[in-house]
Design a protein around this nucleic acid. Sequence first.
DNA 1: ACGGTATATACCTTAATACGTATATAACAC
DNA 2: GTGTTATATACGTATTAAGGTATATACCGT
Lengths: 131, 131
Amino acid sequence: MKLTQIYQCLCDQTRLRILNLLHGRELCVCHIQEILGEPQVKISKHLAYLRAHGLVATRREANWVVYRLPERPSRDLSANLACLQDCVREIPVFGRDSARLTRLKAKFEVSSPICCTTKARIPQSSHRKVE
Amino acid sequence: MKLTQIYQCLCDQTRLRILNLLHGRELCVCHIQEILGEPQVKISKHLAYLRAHGLVATRREANWVVYRLPERPSRDLSANLACLQDCVREIPVFGRDSARLTRLKAKFEVSSPICCTTKARIPQSSHRKVE
DNA sequence: ACGGTATATACCTTAATACGTATATAACAC
DNA sequence: GTGTTATATACGTATTAAGGTATATACCGT
């Protein structure tokens, strides 16, 4: 993949916020959506863009589509993702997102569901890569 | 300066080639132009774009405008420029550009001019920052 | 002043991007 | 099957970007 395409993916604030959230964990669309406080279509399109360029991978889990960073990023991609992590550390909006993620995760671990809704529905399922 | 603006500057191949050439040295427009083999207007506009976003600084030297990387880049910028240098090391086009630069520099050091033309015209001048 | 070289900008066209509204698809519960 | 939730896509619009042609500006040499 071309280096310029990596940078094209990185030159939008919403996409950077998404990548920040996905660092070290996977998330379904509606979690991302709720954390960022942006409309569903906006999140979905940015995720599609990232996926089309290989910056994220997906797997379906029942109703939900779970996004994650690729497990084998290219040298260029992993270098840039690391650099990004380094940069966002000092930028408030990303810290706020991470904090919201923590709160949300904790909340859902208490109310028990696998994913986003307030009602638990799906039994624990294995976290194998499907795609 | 916003992180996304840095990435916007980096998401064009010509701009990456320019930044690669400017790593550790300064160059006038026509040198850049000759090395990259691209039309003057294209180079000039990309340089203007980079300058408008603070990724390069300039100084005028007689007829020529000399471009360089900023001497005090922000944390984010220097992190990304370093990452870029790391990435381009393995991409052929950038190596070719650097090789051409070396050849061109050598050639002009022999034929003596300060800058681009084949005829020397300007006496040695100090390399102080003007801007 | 004039002519020449180096660089920048105006203007145009085309393509890509971002966002929104509305709708489609996928998986589930019943 | 129907209804519901989660996610994706189609389509329209406004903005931005990239490239080209032509022209302007800046500096130099005379």
